[in-house]
Design a protein around this nucleic acid. Structure first.
Lengths: 337, 337
DNA sequence: AAAGATTGGTATAACGTTATACCTTCTGTC
DNA sequence: GACAGAAGGTATAACGTTATACCAATCTTT
């Protein structure tokens, strides 16, 4: 196993100086076709891969972008990651993903590690309860940062989000139009900006249309919790005929629970999800949900990062992506009587 | 926004040399408590974070581990990632994840980027059809590598896998014990080592017990493909009363398709999945499947990496994790007649 | 009190790139 | 054939750490 080749090895092999070899590798400077070819051949022959640490240290440029997210396994998030990667990789960046698992401490370690390695930029879904020190750290070290999905209270960075209030508004109006009066909001636990917005959109419609008092029911955002919550909600509030969910997984859980007790989603109780995850279309019955294209969101995110890297000193921007209602089979008119 | 502090800044602030400051930060050398305290205070005051590029370049040590996997969104894989991160982060490593999406070209770029940044090690599920050049690259650059789940044909690295043949053997025996004679193997397309092993375990039982000729049916490993395949398989081979699947998603798809045509999984046709994904327990009916604990697999993987980093020159090892049969509701005796 | 050991600290040369400045040849022009 | 300018290359000093070697005190031991 040969020693790891460095630029000097390549230069020697090609019979030129390291300066020349460097220029060839970067496609910079004025180099004749003949020497360029010599160098490239030598590099290829030796399996040369430049050392990015040295390069980025000297040049001050690092084409590695980090993505810190609260849950890697979530299919929505996975699509976002695909969108980000596709665009950034096409521009020659490397995207590496860290899972904070919504743990502030783990997140702090991850971000610290980022700074250590002086990454080129950070795409970030802040964990719930993220404290100021974490983003102070990013600011003082001047890491170009774009947050998404979740807002920070005082927003010092670029942000890409969903028009959340608008989305739950549409969902609630859809249910109201079908004739529902007792509509609950189900899912989420935190007082995050996003959830607050969603609850606001829902509550607004409930009041504007003179429907029942808003009813918000907390749960974790997974299928199992959705099932348990549905059972509990039925028991506590039998008058509820429709629910707006904070996520598709909760919604699918609720739908399953309903069927387990012999009721039909979209008939006995109507359910609107949020996210349009892949399973939403193929679950039984297919789920009515609010869709945002996570892939497009990812691309948008990547674009904002590229813009930021181009113009580091422009003020932070906020971009919002609209959600659209996808009507499937879990919503319908309330049961008679 | 202050200039990014470097060791020199800290040293100056504390009134010592950079050598001393460095030793304090690393907890190395012989330093009095008084100066140690001075330096630490200065570092804290300035929000100093050491530059890992410079450090790893000089020391030759990089506590960043990369994980290249074929599908980030897969819940099984996500659990593996959790297991890996928990153990390695406890040891002070940073784990960053790259999604190859089973694309050889993307994978090559990812791994090349890894080498560029001289990461400390690579945990890797090779994409299908990975060619020799990719792992030659790893070898010539001396990156400590552990492959998992998927074998490379000639295995030059440590490997952690599932006892695949043994697993499908157990699954097939379970079905045979229930009285099935016509059992098919469903799922997967590639001639990967893993799938070959699984088919071997299945085929062996079919022959040992004198059951029907082995029947292998190719598909993609997702839910939708499982549905389509089930329909096609029923049409082509109505005598089949049980199937062993290459993955839970295919199995769940098959189960759904069966119910769509009015049949009952576990009664009309028995189904055994593979992986025990989260959905397996909550799908209707709950899926009988072969389970390996992905979290434990992840920890094992991390441990092998740590061992490898300790002893770079020992020969590669192969570790296998057993799968256990989880009996739920999709298996039962074959229909009478 | 001389020799050795220990303690606490520092100067300096790497690590592998790239940016800058500079140095040779060549051309072509008058 | 003198001179400007371009074309093609190279020497060298950074970038921010850490490992090595070394030094100057202070403390033992005999």
């Amino acid at each position: 196993m040969a020693r790891k080749p460095k630029l000097e090895t390549v230069a020697k092999e090609a019979g030129v100086s390291t300066a020349t070899a460097s220029q060839v590798m970067r496609g910079a400077g004025r180099i004749s076709d003949a020497t360029r070819k010599k160098v490239l051949e030598a590099a290829h022959k030796l399996h040369y891969v430049p050392d990015g640490r040295a390069a980025s240290m000297r040049s001050g440029i690092n084409r590695e972008i980090g993505l810190v997210i609260h849950q890697i396994a979530n299919p929505f998030n996975a699509e976002v990651i695909s969108g980000v990667s596709d665009l950034l990789e096409a521009e020659g960046f490397l995207v590496s993903v860290l899972d904070s698992r919504d743990d502030v401490e783990r997140q702090r370690r991850n971000i610290q590690a980022f700074i250590r390695n002086a990454r080129g930029g950070l795409l970030w879904v802040p964990a719930d309860d993220t404290d100021d020190t974490t983003y102070d750290l990013l600011r003082t070290h001047g890491i170009p940062t774009v947050t998404f999905l979740r807002h920070l209270p005082s927003e010092p960075f670029d942000h890409v989000g969903i028009r959340d209030a608008d989305a739950t508004r549409k969902a609630t109006e859809h249910l109201a139009d079908l004739g529902h009066r007792h509509i609950a909001f189900l899912g989420g636990k935190s007082r995050s900006f996003v959830r607050t917005e969603r609850i606001a959109g829902y509550s607004d419609v409930m009041q504007e249309r003179g429907l029942a008092e808003p009813l918000v029911w907390d749960t974790e955002d997974d299928k199992m919790s959705g099932m348990e919550a549905m059972v509990a909600l039925r028991a506590a509030h039998p008058e509820v005929t429709a629910i707006v969910c904070n996520g598709d997984m909760v919604a699918i859980g609720a739908s399953l629970a309903l069927q387990k007790i012999g009721q039909t989603p979209g008939h006995d109780v109507s359910i609107v999800g949020f996210d349009d995850v892949q399973d939403a279309a193929v679950s039984t019955p297919p789920l009515t949900t609010m869709a945002v294209s996570p892939y497009q969101l990812g691309r948008k995110l990547a674009q904002i990062m590229l813009d930021r890297l181009q113009a580091p000193d422009t003020p932070p921007t906020v971009t919002q992506v609209a959600a659209t209602l996808i009507t499937r089979s879990t919503t319908g008119a309330p049961p008679a009587g």
